[in-house]
């Protein structure tokens, strides 16, 4: 599906530009964004090297296992097809914890490691059940401290920069709960389809 969406965005844009005289803008946006993507990827190196390095130490020190044991009842229910003591659990939990505390740049490397571990479990290039659940939780952005937003509000002299923390937490709880439920519904639908 992503192939179609990817192609459709570019095709629609170019066709629209044909009839609206915005070809110049398209050219400009094209190379500017390609540049941005390279800068973003290079910028990711620092974050990835730092957090993956630290996580390796944490893993060897047994901290990830500890985290996994701590939240076992919660995550085994969310990810029933991952064996209880699999390293994937530790990475999933570190990713969720990092997100929870607004450490966005730490969450990404741990999330990728979690995906890697889940791929080793499923051994195909198809998204597994737990991968989809994991992505659903991540895209709904389960967070306690929306640090970036607070920083912007402070910059524009808000009288109470953190007053949106409460509303953000409630909204994110609702969307995360919805994500988990929608994910389950789609899963059961897949199972039914397979049975037929």
């Amino acid at each position: 599906m992503v192939n179609y969406i990817w192609a459709a965005m570019a095709v629609i844009g170019i066709v629209y530009a044909m009839f609206n005289g915005t070809m110049e803008e398209v050219n400009e946006a094209l190379f500017e964004s390609a540049d941005d993507a390279v800068m973003l990827s290079i910028g990711l190196i620092s974050v990835l090297v730092f957090w993956l390095g630290l996580m390796k130490v944490a893993e060897e020190a047994g901290l990830l296992n500890m985290l996994a044991r701590l939240f076992k009842p919660f995550v085994t229910r969310l990810f029933p097809d991952i064996p209880k003591d699999h390293p994937a659990m530790g990475y999933i939990l570190s990713n969720l914890t990092a997100n929870l505390f607004g450490l966005g740049n730490a969450a990404t490397p741990m999330g990728i490691k979690a995906m890697e571990q889940m791929k080793q479990l499923s051994k195909t290039d198809e998204a597994s059940r737990s991968m989809i659940t994991f992505l659903a939780i991540n895209t709904s952005s389960l967070t306690l401290i929306p640090a970036t937003v607070i920083a912007i509000r402070m910059k524009y002299d808000s009288a109470a920069p953190t007053e949106i923390v409460g509303t953000t937490i409630i909204a994110t709880l609702i969307s995360s709960a919805a994500a988990i439920m929608i994910d389950r519904l789609f899963y059961y639908r897949r199972v039914r389809k397979q049975k037929r």
Binding site: M1, V2, I5, T108, G111, I112, M115, E116, K119, D125, E126, A127, M131, I132, F134, L135, A136, N138, T139, S140, S141, T143, P146, T148, V149, I164, T167, T168, I169, A171, T172, S175, A179, I182, D183, F186, Y187, R190
Partner: peptide, 29 residues
Amino acid sequence: GSTDTTLYIITVYFGAVGIRRMGDALKVG
């Protein structure tokens, strides 16, 4: 603060580990 860039997350996570068929992930997100 309460939502995230679904397309970016899917691109990065599935891209990094080489998942080609992403099932219902995009719809759910």
